[in-house]
Simulated assay, not measured.
Amino acid sequence: MPLIQRVMIVGGTHGNEFTGAYLIKKFEQHPHLVHRASFETITLLANPKAFLAVRRYIDKDLNRCFQQVELQDLTLSSYEDIRAKEINYFFGANGKTPVDAILDIHTTTANMGLTVITDEHPFNLRLAAYLQSINPLVNVYVLPQSEQEYSLPSICKFGCTIEVGAVAQGLLQADLFRQTEALIDTALNYLEQYNQAEILSFDSKLTFYQHHGTIDYPRNESGEIQAMIHPQLHFQDYKSLTPGAPMFLTFDGEAIAYEGASTVYPVFINEAAYYEKGIAMCITQRQQAIF
């Protein structure tokens, strides 16, 4: 694989996720923090208008605007569609200053801790394994390529999304801010070592969570939610959910059990931004690989 020449750190893809946005501002004020000798590091506040408005987006979710068919569709004229085209024009694979790797910082209201979200590309999995070997608290959530192709990091092959929580929307939380900054620093160090062929061999068993679908809230015929996340499941991201275990609780206090055939590991449980997407949680299977 060719050397990494340009890395882009992104924050504020969603305007009310402050950790990434304010890390970008810090890195812009103190560029030495992200400088590495073997590649250029650039920063991007992805959705500045939404950030100023303290909203997830202005017209539509920017992190769903990067499919190639949408980027090439000139009839799409929402603010986020135009912004996606601008980002791709400058930094995409065929852009004016294409980037080789993207580290896209997000926060979630779900109890995801430090999560690295990536696809199944071997380079990205090895980066994730390294991050987990340095910090065993790092969770790795692996999405299929089809689930990634609409997101901002899809404009290049390498890198990952860093998802941190639980953090309320429009709020900074000092401990998770510092942990996210440390994770970015470690990722940049890995890319630097890769370029210099100095990556130390590490015998690491990567534990990761493979995406297997989503579950919506129970709804009536009008589409209105009829139950909440059960208290026993709330904030239990990456914990096992066994068949028959309570999943939802109706407004009348009746428990609704998980009816799957096997144990799963839910993530993004009760994510505030996913109510509009019809997602109560994402379902994963826990797996391991040796690096």
Rank of each mutant, 00 (worst) to 15 (best):
M1Q: 10
M1P: 14
M1L: 14
H14L: 12
F18C: 04
A21K: 07
Y22N: 13
Y22D: 05
L23I: 12
K26W: 02
Q29Y: 02
H30E: 13
A37P: 04
S38D: 02
S38H: 05
I42G: 07
T43C: 12
T43Y: 03
L44W: 07
N47I: 00
F51E: 00
A53K: 15
V54R: 14
R56D: 06
D61Q: 09
E70Y: 10
T75C: 05
S78A: 07
R83Q: 14
R83S: 05
E86T: 02
I87D: 15
F90K: 06
A93D: 09
N94D: 14
K96A: 15
T97V: 02
P98Q: 05
L103V: 11
T108W: 10
T109A: 03
A110P: 08
N111G: 03
N111L: 06
M112N: 12
D119K: 07
F123S: 02
R126A: 12
R126S: 15
L127D: 09
A128K: 06
L131I: 11
Q132A: 12
Q132P: 12
I134C: 15
N135A: 12
N135P: 10
P136R: 10
L137R: 15
L137F: 10
Q145M: 08
S146E: 13
E147N: 14
Q148Y: 10
S151P: 01
S151L: 09
P153T: 02
P153I: 00
I155S: 11
K157P: 01
G159A: 04
C160I: 03
V167W: 10
Q169V: 00
L171Q: 14
A174S: 15
D175I: 07
L176H: 11
R178W: 06
A182T: 08
D185G: 02
T186A: 13
L188T: 12
Y190I: 02
L191E: 03
Q196W: 00
S201Q: 09
D203W: 00
H212W: 01
I225Y: 05
I225D: 03
M228C: 06
M228I: 04
H230K: 04
P231F: 07
Q232A: 15
F235M: 08
Y238R: 09
T242G: 01
M247G: 04
F248Y: 11
L249C: 07
T250L: 07
T250F: 13
F251C: 09
F251P: 05
G253E: 03
G253H: 08
I256G: 00
E259Q: 14
G260V: 06
G260P: 10
T263A: 13
Y265A: 01
P266Q: 01
F268Y: 13
E271F: 12
E276Q: 13
M281N: 06
T284F: 13
R286P: 02
Q287I: 00
I290D: 14
